[in-house]
Simulated assay, not measured.
Amino acid sequence: MGVPAGRLAVVLLGVLAWLALAGPAAAHVGGGAAGSDFDGRVTSVQPAVPGVSVRVLQFGDEVELVNSTATEVTVPGYSDEPYLRIGPDGVWRNAHSPATYINLDRFGRVTLPAGADPAAEPEWVQVSTEPQYVWHDHRTHWMSEEQLPPAVAADPTRGHSVFEWTVPMAHGTTPVTVRGVLTWSPPPAPALVWTLHLALVAAVAATGLLARTPRALAVALAVGGAAALWHAASTPEPPATVSSHAAALVSALLPALTAAAVATAGVVAARRDRGVVTGLLAVVLGWLLLVQGLPDVDVLWSAHVLSGGPDLAARLAVGVLVAGGAGLVVGGLAAARRFRAREHDRPAPEPQPVG
Rank of each mutant, 00 (worst) to 15 (best):
P4C: 07
L148A: 12
L148I: 05
T129A: 15
P353T: 04
M143T: 11
V54I: 06
G2E: 10
P122V: 05
V3W: 14
L249M: 10
A114M: 04
E145A: 15
A34Q: 09
G14D: 09
L196K: 09
V284T: 15
A227L: 09
L290E: 05
L57D: 13
G325Y: 02
G159P: 00
A222K: 04
V176L: 08
T43G: 04
G355Q: 12
E72L: 08
G225R: 00
A70K: 14
E237I: 02
A27K: 09
F107D: 09
T69L: 07
A323P: 06
G30M: 08
L210E: 06
P113C: 12
H28W: 15
D61K: 12
A206T: 03
A303N: 05
L209P: 01
V10Q: 11
G180D: 03
P150N: 08
V15Y: 03
P113V: 09
L8Q: 11
D37N: 15
L290F: 06
D311N: 05
L306Y: 12
G159V: 07
V305H: 00
G208L: 01
A228V: 05
A256G: 05
V56I: 05
G327M: 05
H96K: 05
A27V: 13
P76E: 00
A334S: 12
T100N: 12
P50T: 12
V204M: 04
P236R: 09
V262D: 09
W92C: 01
V125M: 13
G208D: 01
T111Q: 15
A33K: 10
A314H: 04
R93N: 02
V52W: 07
S185P: 03
S68Y: 00
G332M: 01
V29G: 03
V63P: 03
